[in-house]
């Protein structure tokens, strides 16, 4: 299996990269970690005539944690997030999720931004950005930077709001309060591969009651998303087994699951119930 021929460019600056993307007029693809794009090219599912390899950028923002937010640049690898020394709740969530992505050799190359741009519905990072209300910065040579909330970024299976000449140059995630609680659960047939269904829960416990409840699921529909009615069922409530089961039940009812030969809609609905329940239980441990 040999990819179709292409021209390879390895620009040093973001401006140069954006210029190359604009010039190619839609025939170019950004090459980041290559963990999704190169296999797709080997199977000729993707046949770009130009590759803009961003691995040599010298001016790309890295991983920066401030008191009120975390910023993730286009070359931050999964493994870097997994080993992140941060002990804030947000840092812990991200490091924990990174541990569920692929395996070490995949994580040393694959990038956070590349995963979002690839937009697999079962991506851990896709789930994280919708659950954590992240903002994505997209940049093009002609229009400069624009900001897109994560909830508006995903447009369908492997489809996003990014235009062909745009690059995802940064993702900003608001800090979680020091008292934030979180729980994550995923079901997959094999470790080291995409999960079938995954759920992330974040909230705060104030005076024994849950506030700011966020529940998001991935791998269920064609894009990851928050489940408002399940969140509302828990807002202001004291955590309990019965409450959690009710919320998980609502979650499983309101999703419109994808189907594939290994997991039909009923199976995915059951997985949503169980993963949301487990994530809730883990969040109060």
């Amino acid at each position: 299996m040999t990819p179709a021929s292409f021209d390879h460019h390895a620009p040093r600056t973001i401006d140069e990269a954006l210029g190359l993307l604009a010039q190619a007029g839609g025939d170019a693809r950004i090459l980041a970690g290559g963990q999704s794009l190169v296999p797709a090219m080997a199977f000729r599912l993707a046949q770009p005539s130009v590759l803009v390899d961003i691995n040599r950028l010298t001016d790309a923002p890295g991983l920066v944690e401030e008191s009120d937010r975390l910023e993730i640049g286009p070359l931050v690898r999964h493994e870097t997030l997994r080993r992140m020394p941060s002990r804030t709740p947000l840092g812990e969530v991200l490091a924990h999720l990174a541990d569920h992505i692929g395996t070490w050799p995949v994580r040393t190359r694959g990038t956070f931004c590349g995963s979002l741009a690839h937009a697999d519905p079962a991506s851990e990072w896709g789930l994280a950005v919708v659950a954590l209300d992240a903002n994505l910065t997209l940049e093009s040579a002609s229009d400069g930077p624009r900001s897109v909330p994560a909830s508006e970024f995903f447009a369908g299976m492997q489809m996003t709001a990014a235009r062909e000449e745009e690059m995802l140059t940064a993702v900003t995630i608001p800090a979680l309060p020091a008292t934030a609680r979180w729980g994550f659960a995923e079901f997959g047939r094999r470790t080291g591969d995409f999960a079938t269904v995954l759920a992330l829960v974040v909230h705060e416990l104030k005076g024994g009651r849950m506030t700011g409840v966020r529940i998001a699921v991935g791998g269920v529909e064609d894009v990851p998303r928050r489940l408002g009615p399940a969140e509302e069922a828990l807002e202001g409530a004291a955590p309990s087994k019965v409450r959690f089961e009710q919320a998980a039940e609502i979650a499983s009812e309101i999703v419109e699951p994808l189907e594939d030969p290994l997991s039909d809609a009923l199976h995915r609905r059951e997985l949503v119930r169980e993963m949301v329940l487990r994530a809730l239980q883990r969040s109060t441990r």
């Binding site: 090459l31 296999p39 080997a42 995949v106």
Partner: peptide, 23 residues
């Protein structure tokens, strides 16, 4: 040839990498 099996693992600058996913 799709990054899954790891039989092609090599070390680049000290890190394991799948040689089928790197140009």
């Amino acid at each position: 040839e799709q990054g899954s099996c790891g039989s092609c693992t090599v070390i680049v600058d000290g890190e394991p990498v799948r040689a089928c996913t790197l140009f």
